[in-house]
């Protein structure tokens, strides 16, 4: 996964609470064989409504999803994270997240940022007043900066380290690539290969 240190971009204000993963990516999209292409399924039911915030040109190109409280509740489908990422978002800011969704996000390198509910409200106001408002999410300093303000957020050391290093489980294992190579060199000659 991509390393996350700091990211600056515009945001989409999604003023809804309790957005569950069924809404983020409806079940019909789970039949796919690939792990790509889920951006088309992101909020696909809501996107049928031309007034839905993602359909508004003013927010085109945004890379931060400004969500309501209890975002990503419900089913454990990792497809929800894939859909958000593949649509172009690097971080989601909310007052509260569904546990599994948050966990899945950190595995994939999508940063879930937890800020106080009032602060999130305030960000919504700023972005709605001026859609070109740039928000900086700084994982290194653990803070969100916008319009000269800085709001700190919490994240545990291990998750932060993994995200900043861009390490998924595979990435973590590959840090021991030398050990793997050493092991490979010592394998017995008669062991079969498929070639």
């Amino acid at each position: 996964m991509d390393a996350f240190t700091t990211h600056t971009g515009t945001a989409v204000p999604l003023r809804r609470s309790n957005v569950d993963t069924d809404q983020i990516i409806p079940a019909v999209w789970l039949k796919q064989v690939s792990r790509t292409g889920f951006e088309k399924g992101l909020f696909s039911a809501w996107r049928e409504d031309p007034a839905f915030v993602l359909n508004q040109d003013t927010y085109a190109g945004a890379t931060i999803l400004l969500a309501g409280p209890d975002f990503g509740t419900g089913s454990s489908r990792e497809h929800a994270v894939w859909a958000i990422q593949q649509y172009g978002f690097r971080a989601v800011i909310a007052a509260r997240f569904g546990d599994i969704f948050r966990n899945n996000s950190t595995k994939m390198g999508l940063l879930p940022v937890i800020l106080d509910e009032k602060v999130v409200e305030h960000l919504h106001d700023l972005v709605e007043a001026d859609p070109s408002t740039e928000i900086t999410v700084d994982l290194d300093k653990r803070e969100v900066r916008v319009a000269g303000e800085a709001h700190s957020f919490e994240i545990d050391d291990y998750t932060r380290w993994r995200l900043m290093e861009g390490l998924d489980d595979i990435g973590l294992t590959l840090r021991h690539a030398d050990d793997i190579a050493t092991y490979e060199n010592g394998r017995q000659s008669w062991l079969p290969t498929t070639v």
């Binding site: 996964m1 792990r35 790509t36 595979i170 793997i180 290969t193 498929t194 070639v195």
Partner: peptide, 17 residues
């Protein structure tokens, strides 16, 4: 697909079938 997205290869295609 995960490999493709991360730009990774199959480490040992010779141990895969």
């Amino acid at each position: 697909d995960g490999l493709r997205m991360a730009g990774r290869k199959v480490r040992r295609p010779d141990l895969t079938i």
